[in-house]
Structures are given as structure tokens and as C-alpha cells.
Design a binder for these strands. Structure first.
Lengths: 334, 334
DNA sequence: CTGAAAGCGCTTACAG
DNA sequence: CTGAAAGCGCTTACAG
């Protein structure tokens, strides 16, 4: 029952053309007349011929694959990126890549060296790298840049460097939020920040500071958090002691969940006693009670744009950074 | 500034051996004496030679890649698999694959035909397929089987077929849960089921039915859910009308969150008025209040085993299905 | 123990 | 418009 492998040669033979003509017909080469192309296509189809992506890749010295580098840490339990972020982004990336006949390979990163990262491209396993969840102070990128490895950042950038990136502008959504609050007569606000490990957390804090001035909110200060539930619980206790504002912005959903938990224990009710608005828009914001009013970060769109950007880097075009707007989604917490 | 590509030939020249010897030295061929191998390795390293995975793959007619097929649907918003499931599983798969010098390519599936799925392997884009989130009644697999495409299921199986799979045994964890409840003197219980679209949901219901008899629980019946928040809210109302049991099992976290929301509106408190135990263990179970007591499904382990199983299929070994135990994690809801 | 040679399946200049 | 030929960079039998 040895099945014969359907090769290009077999198709050529049946169609009475040369193998190179088969290739040309199937890839839509302009020089081939429609009649010939159609004949070849029909025979190829009938025979079930499927071109080897390995042969093609090898000849062209391109893998037609994008490497998506995903950080992780092993502690007691496996630490991943916020999962929704990861999966929504990845869908966008995959779908957009697919349209361009690229596929996506995932690369786990528990602290690979710059050389190890470069290796993925130098060995032609992938054609370029997409980085998410990058922390400030990561020093691996100058080597990649020097080695001319195509790479981009998602939700990160390095001031003063020419590393291309796709980012979300927190300002548009925060502006909507502040206008919404103003129109409801709210005035006293606070922020539980995301600390300084991530560029995005820093930016959110900076934009918050700028806008509360611009919109003349009464500034009750900032509490430093770190994107964890625990820091939210802690913030709740501190805020309860110091006196409640009317609105609390949280740098992410985990902080907000911790905050609301902390308030619950103190009999402080959201949104009746204090409103809460959250950055990002994870699935959890719709699962918890109350459902969280958020400044949405368009992860899926971001993935789509990421595919476009890394492909332009791979083609050695001059990359154009992409900045997507965030927007307000009103639910129950504010 | 034209950089010369470091080739195997250059290494061979510097080391005064043939190119084939370079390959052999670098891949640890047994016939090469340590002296020669070390010399070649040193020179290759110094030159920064990195073998092309494309050449290797092409020659061996193997991509050294596992395809992870991820279902999605476009509705108003993109529908993904439960995200934690997806990401934790993927980590396990990636890490385990990496140990065997395989990488993982993700394949989005919004209803690809069997031929389209097969195509990924036939074109050598990947060597085999891993399926998650498969619904009962999916008819695409007989064609894959017939075409001898290596593939496996995760958390799914087809009775009477020889399709290999990795699954979790819900019984071990449920048994622990029931013993735990008994030891606390609890007796009257219910289940909000996950419907019949997924094999796993069906299995959970069947095992539940079996064990409440075995442990002599007082059976207050089953409410059909569908893994959605809404079905949890609905169940809460129904249960409140019909009279509260002591314990409610939920087929997943979304149902449980809906249930607790529904109870909250009715002033029914968890765990004071009724205990809740949930299958799976998503991140959300630790974020919500109360933290949910769960029967853990080891997603990460499952990913690791999946890599082993699909690789054994690829190597044409006789695949051995893998069934992992679940276990009880006690938190605040029961 | 090591080299020369064949071949993996493609694509693309180069002829005609 | 189409064919014959070269070559992508590797591995592995086959000689020696």
C-alpha cells in the first residue's frame, strides 16, 4: 500500500510541460497564458499535488514565519502574561500574518540571551521577532539591532532608539473617561499606578497627571501599585484610612479586583461609595461584580498591526511605528 | 559593509576538513573523534556559524514543528478559547517541544475543512497537529486519519475511534471534593452542567452522577448550563426558587461567576448560605470574591504531555493515550 | 575516521 | 511563451 508521493514532476509529465512551468502556473507567474495555467492547475488539483513549503523556503532563504516571543517565569506556579492579552493579541497576529501567507511560531522566553534570540532568525527558523511584555531596562535589543535582526515591540518602546513598535495611546480613552466623569459632576480622583517596571504603566501615570490638571480634577494623589491583586487590596486599606475620593483609576484589572475586594471587607461599595475605572480590558472585567468600566486597549487590532509592522521590517522597508487609540467602555463600576 | 554569510564551507576551510565533517562534528556524529569535533566546534563558534534550519528541514523532509490548531469565532467580539487554558497549555507544549528541538506553530481555525487542515502537514509546514477545544460531532478527523496525518486531541476523544488524545480525569478531583464535603457534614448537592457540546462537559456530568450515588449524597438534580456566565445567572434564579442545596458544583468558572452574581442579587451568600465548587482552575477563580474552590485541570502538564504524544505519532510509534488526574484545591467558596 | 557525491523540492535568471 | 540548468544548505549512504 505504498503511496507514491505526488511531485511537481508528475504533474509536469501529465500536463506535458516542464516542471518549471508547473511552478510558474501555480504561483501565477505573469508570463504564463491562462490556458496553460488552467490546464496545469486542474491537473495539479486532480492529482492532489501540494507544493512543499520546505523546498520553497529553502530556495528563497525565508521561512515565511513570524516569531512571537512570549516571556514566562517559573515560580510556584507558571507565570504567564495576562492571558487575555496574550491570546487576543496572538489571534490578531495570526490572522493578519495568514493573509500574507506567513505563519506564527511561538518562542518561550524565560530570559534568553540576545544571541539565543538572534539565533532564531539567523538559523532561518523565523524571519523576524515580535516582543510582548517587555520590561524597562531589558538590554538585549542593541545586539539584535546591531545584527540587523528584524524585530518590533508591542506595548513598549525605548526613547531615543529606533526600535519599531506598536503601542496603544492611553490618552484618548482616559480623556473620554474624564469627560464622562466631569459630565456626571465627579471631581475628586486618585490613581493606583502600575509601578515602573513597564513603560506602559509609566505612561499611564504621566498621562493621568497631565489630564487631571487639564480637566481641573481635584488631585487626591497616586498610590504606587505593581499590577498585582495584592497591591489593590493594600491600596483599598490605605485609601479607606485617608478618606475616599469620588473616583479611583486603576492601572490594570488585577489591581481593580484587589481594590474592590479590599473595599468589600471594609463595607465600602463600588460604585455607590466610590467609582472605579480600569485600564486594559481583560475578560475578567466582565466576569466580576460589578462589571468594570474600562479604558480599552485594543489587543486584537494590535496583533493585526504587529504583523504588518514586522513584515515591513522583514522586507527592509522603513518601518512606521503604529499607535492605536484606546477608548472608554462604560459598565457598572463607574 | 556587505557582511559575508558564514557558511559551513567557510568553517570547513578554516578547520581544514570537508563540509560533511563539519556537519558531523556539530551534530555529534559518533564516528568523529573528540579532537576533531572540538576543533571544528571551536572554529564554528569563533566564526559565528549557525546552521540553516531550512537546509536541514528540506533534506530531512521534516519541519520539526508542531501545529497547534486554535479554534476561534468572530461575533461582535473575537471569541477565543478560555484564555488561561490556551496560554497555560501552550506554555507546556512549547517548553516540552523545545526540549526535543521542536517548535510550535499556531494555526487559527475558524472552521477549516479537513483538506485545509491536512494541507498544513502535507506541505510540510508542520509535522503534526494538536487540536484543542474540539466540539462533539466535528467530522473532519476521519479524513485526516485516512490521509495518515499525525494528530491528537486535547480534552476530547471519540469513543470507538483510534484517535490519540491527552485528557484529564475529572473523577480523581471530584472524589476528593466529595470526601471533603462529607467530612464537613454536607449532604444535599446539585450540578450546573456544561451542556453537551463538549465531551468533557458530558464526562463531568456522568462522573458526577456516578459519585453522588457512591458517596450517598442527597441528589437535588442537575441544571443544564452551557459554560456561559448567563447560564450561571439563570441557574441561580432557578435554584433560589426551588430551594437551596448545601453545595453546588459548576462545570466551569464562568458558570460559577454567573451563579454567584445571581445569588448576590438575591442576597444569597457564598459560602455562608451555599457552597460552590468549580471544575477547571482559571486565573479568575483566584481573582473573584469569594475565591473559588476548584477541581484543578492541569493545563500546563497537559501541554507537556501533548508534545510527547504528538511526537510519538510523528515518529510513527504506537501512540499511548495519556490521562492526567485532576485534584481539589480548597479556597473560600466551599 | 573522513571525503566526494548525490539528492531533498523548489525558484529564477538565462536561453531560445 | 516555455524549457534546461543552476543553486539554496544541508545530511547521509558510499567509498576509501
Amino acid at each position: 500500500m505504498a503511496k507514491i508521493k505526488i511531485t511537481r514532476e508528475l504533474v509536469a509529465q501529465k500536463a506535458k510541460v516542464a516542471p518549471s512551468t508547473v511552478s510558474r502556473a501555480l504561483s501565477g507567474h505573469p508570463g504564463i497564458p491562462k490556458r496553460t495555467a488552467d490546464k496545469v492547475k486542474k491537473i495539479a488539483e486532480a492529482l492532489g499535488y501540494i507544493p512543499s513549503s520546505l523546498g520553497r523556503s529553502h530556495f528563497q532563504k525565508k521561512s515565511f514565519r513570524i516569531g512571537c516571543v512570549i516571556p514566562y517565569k517559573f515560580d510556584q506556579r507558571i507565570q504567564t502574561l495576562p492571558s487575555d492579552y496574550f491570546s487576543k493579541f496572538l489571534y490578531g497576529l495570526m490572522l493578519s500574518a495568514m493573509e500574507k501567507n506567513y505563519s506564527v511560531t511561538v518562542i518561550p522566553d524565560s530570559g534568553l540571551s540576545a544571541s539565543e534570540l538572534a539565533h532564531n532568525v539567523q538559523s532561518n527558523n523565523v524571519d523576524g521577532l515580535v516582543f510582548l511584555g517587555i520590561r524597562r531596562g531589558d538590554t538585549r535589543f542593541s545586539e539584535l539591532y546591531r545584527k540587523k535582526i528584524p524585530f518590533i515591540f508591542i506595548h513598549h518602546y525605548e526613547p531615543g532608539r529606533n526600535y519599531p513598535y506598536v503601542d496603544t495611546n492611553a490618552e484618548t480613552g482616559l480623556r473620554e473617561a474624564m469627560e464622562y466623569l466631569k459630565s456626571n459632576g465627579l471631581n475628586k480622583c486618585m490613581l493606583v499606578s502600575g509601578g515602573n517596571a513597564f513603560r506602559n504603566a509609566l505612561d499611564r501615570t504621566a498621562i493621568y497627571k497631565k489630564l487631571i490638571k487639564e480637566y481641573s480634577f481635584s488631585d487626591l494623589g497616586i498610590i504606587d501599585g505593581d499590577f498585582s491583586i495584592k497591591s489593590g487590596v493594600f491600596a483599598a486599606k490605605k485609601i479607606a484610612l485617608e478618606g475616599l475620593p469620588e473616583v479611583i483609576f486603576c492601572a490594570n484589572d488585577r489591581i481593580a479586583c484587589g481594590l474592590i475586594q479590599g473595599f468589600q471587607e471594609l463595607q465600602i461599595r463600588v460604585p455607590m461609595d466610590v467609582k472605579v475605572i480600569v485600564f486594559d480590558d481583560m475578560n475578567v472585567t466582565r466576569i466580576v461584580t460589578p462589571k468594570l468600566t474600562t479604558i480599552e486597549n485594543p489587543f486584537f487590532e494590535c496583533g493585526k498591526k504587529a504583523a504588518e509592522l514586522i513584515l515591513s521590517c522583514i522586507k527592509k522597508e522603513k518601518p512606521q511605528n503604529i499607535i492605536l487609540p484606546s477608548k472608554l467602555i462604560i459598565r457598572d463600576s463607574a
